[in-house]
Amino acid sequence: MKAIVIQTYGGPEGLAVVDLLAPVAAAGQVVVATEAVGVGGVDTVIRSGALAAYGFKEGHIPGSEVAGTVTAVGDGVDASWIGRRVWAFTGTGGGYVEQALAPVEEIVPLPVNLSAVDAVTLGSSGVVAHFGLRHAHFAPGETVLVRGAAGSIGIMAVQLAARGGAAAVAVTTSSAERGEHLRRLGATHVLDRSGDGGEPAPDGYDVIIDVAAGKDMPSFFDRLNPNGRMVAVGAVAGQPPADFGMKIMAAFQKSMSFATFSAHTVTGADRGAVRSEQFAAASRGEVETVVHEVLPLDAAVLAHQKMDAGEVFGRIVLTP
């Protein structure tokens, strides 16, 4: 089968197409013939080599979510899964392939009228947005800022906050065109990447969902209202400055708080339940999946070039 591996860490050109033996499901696993593979921001971070210290080695297959049809199951897995269309989480890698392995507890059946492309656009990002807002104790009537709203997580956070009754949903993004699209999805205020803009915006926010992190994170923490909560759900712009903790302590008298969130800290059963609900909502047209572009699997280099250039609004999907 075809697979994409990281031959050398660094730029997108370090990705290569290789031929591998088809996988065999071990106990508790399924094999999924992939119809769609989601390209995530973490894939580009891993490819860059920034996470090499965490055990990612050259030869790693990137990608963590696929959708397709179960073709085989391992010992202990109900054979009735064979032939069913599913979304699957492959772990910290192993997704950029024609046939993927996944634990049976990490697959979710797809509604008949939900495409594989839409499934990988929503599957991981929707869960992160949902639980990120919960982690921030978001409540109806509060003001929300989504920083880095052009990616699939930010897009879902905007929609969920708006549907959840936010008094205002401000977003940061890089262009007026993206801003108008985000308004259609529920944003009430569109700001530039610095958090400013040509329109009036809330003076402060009760909740900030930050997908970007990076050197500018402290300036956004300053925008929290008293008792405001900032939750970092990603770090596509890199790590915050080393003195960010001093900024948090300086806000002691305002009872503002900062937290991080990773979907791995939520039980698989809870993640699966939310995914099922969101897939059903998307199939009914209640949640919009935003697909930037669909590319063939062997165009992974181009996909990562677009990601690195900041050109992507929504999700790039690879199709074997």
Rank of each mutant, 00 (worst) to 15 (best):
V287A: 11
P62N: 06
A280T: 05
F138K: 00
D216L: 14
V211P: 03
V17G: 08
A250G: 12
S194G: 02
L20H: 13
G95H: 06
S125H: 07
R184I: 08
M256I: 13
H264T: 15
R184H: 13
G14S: 00
P111N: 09
A161H: 13
V274N: 09
A168H: 05
V42S: 11
V294I: 14
A242P: 07
Q99H: 15
L185M: 09
R315K: 15
A212W: 12
Q29W: 04
A136K: 01
G93V: 07
I4E: 09
V104W: 12
A309M: 14
H181N: 05
A102Y: 08
T172G: 01
G204W: 15
W81E: 06
R147D: 14
Y9I: 05
L133E: 04
F138T: 04
Q99L: 04
M249I: 12
G38A: 02
V171Q: 13
Q7D: 15
M230R: 09
T289V: 02
I46K: 00
H264M: 13
R229P: 10
A72Q: 08
P23R: 09
Q7V: 04
A282I: 03
E286G: 04
A263M: 15
V274T: 01
Y96D: 04
L110H: 12
A72M: 00
A309F: 10
T92W: 04
G179I: 15
Y54A: 03
S257C: 03
T90W: 15
H264A: 13
M156S: 12
I82V: 13
R183C: 05
I107H: 00
T121R: 07
P111G: 02
D192T: 03
A72V: 05
F279D: 00
S262L: 15
S64D: 01
G272L: 06
F89W: 14
S262E: 15
